[in-house]
Write a protein that binds this DNA or RNA. Sequence first.
DNA 1: CCTCTTGCGTCAATGCTGTTGACATAAGGG
DNA 2: CCCTTATGTCAACAGCATTGACGCAAGAGG
Lengths: 240, 240
Amino acid sequence: MPSRVPQERSRRRPTRSGVLLSEDLIVETGLRLIGEHGPEALSVRRLGAALGCDPSALYRYFHDTDDLVLAIADRIIGDAMAGFEPGDDWVAALRETALRVRAGYLAHPRAAALASHRVTRRENEIRAVETGIALLMSAGFEPATAVRFYLAFIDTVLSHAATDAAFAALPRQQREADQRAWRDVYQDLDPQAYPALTAARGELPGMADSAFEDAVDLLLEALAARAPANRRKRTDAVGR
Amino acid sequence: MPSRVPQERSRRRPTRSGVLLSEDLIVETGLRLIGEHGPEALSVRRLGAALGCDPSALYRYFHDTDDLVLAIADRIIGDAMAGFEPGDDWVAALRETALRVRAGYLAHPRAAALASHRVTRRENEIRAVETGIALLMSAGFEPATAVRFYLAFIDTVLSHAATDAAFAALPRQQREADQRAWRDVYQDLDPQAYPALTAARGELPGMADSAFEDAVDLLLEALAARAPANRRKRTDAVGR
DNA sequence: CCTCTTGCGTCAATGCTGTTGACATAAGGG
DNA sequence: CCCTTATGTCAACAGCATTGACGCAAGAGG
């Protein structure tokens, strides 16, 4: 069997039920399936049924299911970063990247649970990596350092976003129970055994909120402090 | 079928191959399977084969496979923080907390990947939160700030640890493909379209490594910079 | 010591899952 | 208009979790 996943398709044939398949349509249907019925609903058989085609037809478009998952992940990235143009302030640009990625994951929490820990190797991700490393190099970091710190930055962003998405993907009951936990369980503790928690008692409900922005801001603060071009403005040393 | 998972067992019968099953033995065998043959080796069939019993016998001990995974995860949690005593240096103490959590997750990635986004509300977690907030208050932070920053810290640690565990939990093929991705795909890019990636080409293989320590160190750096008691030593203002 | 109950290991079956090789049909270039 | 071949379909395989029925034997009661 030669390459089942050709680059371009000139001979598009409708399926028995009349649908014209395409990579985009499959990815969108997969995203919809996951959104409606949870991540476990993404199987070639269900996808085939939802699309009105034989399950094996999908292998004409994706090498295997993992390939499909990566395509879905890359679509989320692309949607999140669509229209993004970094300005002059590299810190602000990285901050917006962080917020956009998080928003993208929260828009598809159940798909994010599946996709958030993967390297997609596809166009949208590559463009995002290019932009991020360029921003850090414009801050004066050497290429090696820029790569390391970009990785630390984007891993923090993706990890937090995945956590927030996983929380958002929980059933309402579990989600609210988790939120109440910080108020209920942590309120009646032995002051002797837990002095710090007792002192901070009134502040604990805030634990239910996401620490995403605090974490990102702290990280960017440390990066700004270490940046050779210390003035938060892009040096344009690397151009564009 | 009445409760297949009784609390106590008085009538223990050896399996056909002579093994006496028990919850502990099953959990240990599961951990061993994962350790020896990778996370994908944990299936009721393989576990049955490894134990020398019919796969369905496991359902006498665990309600379903998720129940089994949680039982395994439960054993992991206690191990990670066992014997931890924070010293005088609050930054070093938080750093060790981070490393311990990550090590505990990485030791048993598949179980960790499943359990890592939940609030346990149990003793070990509460003690860790107490210790962490106490450390930040000893650095001079107000209770409200200490709570916020502890959340940012522990969320970063848990999220990164979950990411690393999720990666380690991938099937071998996908894991190796993800690692190769940075070397293969990102090497032959159009220098015009991707100047930063081209400049950093030689450094990209490092992207396959974990950014955990960089991220934690950057975060602790920012916290130390913001700490009112700026000398990295605990003030003992909060006691303990 | 025998008998009866029932816990628990075993077997077989169900219905999922991904994946692939062979086949048929129609699209569209020459 | 015909021929190549891309692409949708079909059937089959192997592996997965799970469960109901079955029967052996462990251990309690007499």
